[in-house]
């Protein structure tokens, strides 16, 4: 039946060799462009918009680690993103810790949650995996509605940005921007490093042919679980950072619609490409910004993009470009 698997659709034939740090030459060029845009961005665009974009880009990259490189579609990543935000918000506001500690705390809790949920969910694969992760995330949503520390419908408001390492104040959007950009870059490079490590190669082997990976002696369940934990942790970092940027953590970020959004971003950008999730996040966040006053039509448009991507555009933007140039991006 599956003559074209997820993997076939996303990974173009690569004829380029390895470059520096596991980046191929085209990827290095793309990385330089990305770095240049990160530095130049705030001179041209509103920093808060860029920070939002970077948080979602990191979120999408974390999600892509699972779908693109292990072939697992998690439909409940909002649970880690949102929980990261709540924890970071609580740690920064109520306990008064510095922002980097708050983000780290959000990441750790999201990671632990990913450990438990991943342990349950990897018992099934394919669409069951998607349904299970979605259901577990919905459980977290209801937990957040009721738990006292999340503030229910109000969320956690007026979260202070604090000062980085207790000395550099982040209250201005400019300084906060460099903090966010730093976190994004670290997360992005870390994911790239993971994918190109020997561990990442085993993940790809599992994606391509799990029975064969098992027969080669790999304990694939452990590999998948670690990937799940890493992905959840990074989603928590993204969520925690977003909470600090906007000073608010709400139910929107744990809702299933958010899980759908990150799937959409990654799909639009290109599943299993390194830069795809960043481009996809940029497209979707920009779209939401410009269409914000159109209300429910945004949902319709997002659904339309979903349908168009699945039916006609499965490689995504970066995947199509990579295929056109016959390189790996």
């Amino acid at each position: 039946m599956a003559s074209e698997t997820t993997a076939d659709a996303i990974v173009p034939a690569a004829r380029d060799g390895r470059g520096i740090w596991g980046f191929t030459r085209p990827q290095l060029v793309a990385l330089l462009v990305l770095a240049a845009m990160l530095v130049a961005g705030p001179y041209f665009l509103y920093p808060v918009f860029l920070m939002k974009l970077l948080c979602f880009a990191l979120f999408a990259c974390a999600f892509n680690l699972l779908i693109g490189y292990v072939g697992l579609l998690s439909f409940g990543h909002a649970a880690y993103f949102g929980m990261g935000g709540y924890i970071a918000g609580h740690v920064a506001k109520v306990w008064g810790f510095t922002p980097e500690v708050a983000v780290l705390a959000g990441a750790v809790v999201a990671g632990l949650q990913g450990w438990v949920f991943g342990w349950i969910a990897i018992r099934r694969a394919g669409i069951y995996f998607a349904m299970i992760t979605l259901a577990l995330a919905q459980m977290i949503y209801f937990f957040c509605v009721q738990a006292p520390f999340t503030g229910g419908e109000d969320g956690i408001q007026a979260i202070p940005r604090g000062s980085f390492l207790g000395s550099m104040g982040l209250s201005s959007d400019w300084s906060m921007y460099w903090f966010v950009a730093g976190i994004f870059m670290i997360g992005f490079l870390l994911i790239h490093r993971i994918i190109h490590s020997p561990y990442g190669q085993v993940l790809k082997a599992i994606r391509e042919n799990e029975p064969r990976a098992i027969s080669l002696g790999y304990r694939t369940e452990d590999y998948k679980l670690v990937a799940f934990i890493l992905s959840a942790t990074l989603a928590g970092v993204a969520g925690g950072t977003k909470a600090l940027v906007f000073g608010i953590a709400t139910l929107t970020d744990v809702h299933w619609a958010m899980s759908g959004e990150v799937v959409l971003m990654t799909l639009v950008g290109g599943l299993g490409t390194v830069f795809g999730p960043v481009v996809g996040a940029a497209v979707i966040v920009t779209m939401q910004n410009y269409l914000a006053e159109m209300g429910a039509w945004v949902t319709v448009i997002q659904g339309g993009i979903f349908v168009a991507c699945v039916l006609a555009f499965r490689r995504g933007i970066v995947g199509e470009i990579a295929n056109l140039l016959r390189v790996r991006l």
Binding site: M1, T5, L267, V310
Partner: peptide, 30 residues
């Protein structure tokens, strides 16, 4: 629509029907 996906990974069917669901819900909300 759905017919076009039978030869693909089943996950695409999930994503397609999710998208269709969003469209329908959005239209009714409008």
């Amino acid at each position: 629509m759905i017919r076009r996906l039978y030869k693909l990974d089943h996950l695409y069917g999930l994503l397609l029907t999710f998208g269709i669901g969003l469209i329908i819900e959005g239209i009714f909300r409008n």
